[in-house]
Design a protein around this nucleic acid. Sequence first.
DNA 1: GTCTATACGCCGATAGAC
DNA 2: GTCTATCGGCGTATAGAC
Lengths: 199, 199
Amino acid sequence: MEKEVVEQDNKTEGKDEILVAALKLFAEKGYFNTSLSDIKDQIGAKTTSPISRHFKTKQAIASELYNSILDNLNISIDDIRRRNKKVVDQLREIVDLMFTLTEEAPEIMRFLLILNTSEFLPEEKPIHESKPFQKIQRIIQAGVKSGEIRASEPPVIFSQFFGIIFQTLVMIITGTLNKKSDSYQASAWVSAWNSIAKV
Amino acid sequence: MEKEVVEQDNKTEGKDEILVAALKLFAEKGYFNTSLSDIKDQIGAKTTSPISRHFKTKQAIASELYNSILDNLNISIDDIRRRNKKVVDQLREIVDLMFTLTEEAPEIMRFLLILNTSEFLPEEKPIHESKPFQKIQRIIQAGVKSGEIRASEPPVIFSQFFGIIFQTLVMIITGTLNKKSDSYQASAWVSAWNSIAKV
DNA sequence: GTCTATACGCCGATAGAC
DNA sequence: GTCTATCGGCGTATAGAC
């Protein structure tokens, strides 16, 4: 059946393996503190050639990573909107998704929330202008219109709601809040929602 | 009276001039995208020698900048605590200070809120463990004890209160919220305080 | 105390052999 | 498709002259 138990199950599959390794290192040490040589070590290669085969530049790795993360987020949000009618339920599921990601794939949330992506990806849209976050803005607009959320400029609503959520997640990621992330999700949600809900 | 009107009033004074120039560039482009040569250009020197005279390494510049900013913040917070008895007034003045800084010295707030300082200053304490922010935590504790703030873990309170404030400031700095920062201060304060105030 | 010149290392990137 | 070798470039840091 198996064709030799290789050292590890490191063989994700060429390109993906590189992306996973890079994500891990970028999240740990930052983009600029990570060299192609570090990535090469991480995937257990002897040289950086396998990397150069798939990516022209180091930036291209970060770029593909960034867009891939945002794409997945975008898909998830579409799914959430499809499955939930009320704005309150949509936002609750989005928050749930982010807490889940923070626990199960903290590198992704580190990349999004802690790294300053515009510093090494200057030509990419900043996170707040990306598709998934524009969709969130639209959800908020819908909530204002339907009366679920109190009237105010959507970016202001956004800053209040996601200010609480993101800051909570950042403090979980950095270890300032050191219990399991579930412990904080409920209170963060209540507080965030109450800060924008009508009456 | 004056001893020659020099090109500009660039002559802040050697070391300070370097720090001001570095702060500006770090805030604009990030630490890693700023070379000593950039700083040299900014202060109008021909070589990096004047810089090396005052600082052994580029990191030392960032470090002194970081500690100087936190020291000043720390002093301001001491002053605020001295002048205000009630916790609500102390927090309101701290928020006021941060909005004022965002308007009058956005580089400082960029440095604190947007740059990932631990990426280039790994041996410095992260911001949330710095003296001024520890003092803020103590203010929160006092508020919980006095009954002004609802009972909960201080870091949770912190994440909710400053989550809103910081996110608002970040969106002002990055231009997502594009009116004058005063326009947003009031609503951010109300929302942040309500999210933690008792009843 | 500022400029000249230089040294050093590291990293990113490429071309060519196996 | 991976390894060898190398190239150029940049950024930091230093030593020495004015």
